[in-house]
């Protein structure tokens, strides 16, 4: 990533910190914004937040590792999330996940070598009527069967 963009991103994060620093319990909000800006929370960003918010970096790291939505590693171009909620599981989400894993050659939580897909197994997305469900970015695919997987992946 180019140096200039990084500087702009840190400047944007600084604005967020200035805005939220004085409101009670705002660390998580700052980190959520930081993840929106950078896409993930590398150690430099965690240090920056810790300095800006006046808390030890251990606290920032502690929060980052507690919640599954914070990522310490960069994500792929597309994030593929397959719902493993009960309704989806009962309707065969595991078989769909197995097929995705074999098609992409990665396990849950990992990113493909070409950086195109990150595969996540998520908690219930609340579209149980469409089970089993997977999402790629904002796009939702419902009633998926394993044989749909190659066709869906080919669109990206």
């Amino acid at each position: 990533m180019a140096e200039c963009c990084q500087n702009e991103k840190f400047a944007e994060l600084q604005q967020v910190i200035d805005q939220l620093k004085d409101s009670q319990g705002s660390l998580m909000q700052v980190m959520q914004k930081a993840q929106d800006i950078f896409g993930y929370l590398p150690i430099e960003v965690q240090n920056f937040i810790a300095d800006g918010m006046g808390v030890p970096v251990t606290e920032v790291y502690g929060v980052a590792t507690f919640y599954s939505q914070f990522s310490l590693e960069p994500k792929g171009e597309h994030t593929l999330s397959i719902c493993l909620g009960t309704a989806c599981y009962v309707k065969g989400a595991q078989a769909v996940l197995d097929r995705i894993k074999s098609e992409l050659g990665i396990t849950e939580g990992k990113t493909t070598a070409d950086g195109r897909f990150t595969l996540l197994a998520t908690r219930c997305l609340g579209c149980c009527g469409l089970a089993p469900v997977l999402t790629i970015g904002e796009e939702v695919y419902g009633r998926v069967v394993p044989d749909d997987v190659p066709g869906i992946l080919a669109k990206y």
Binding site: G85, T86, C124, C127, C128
Partner: peptide, 11 residues
């Protein structure tokens, strides 16, 4: 924070 898988009434 409706976390129970399969419950979506709060949503």
């Amino acid at each position: 924070d409706e976390g129970d898988p399969g419950a979506f009434m709060d949503r």
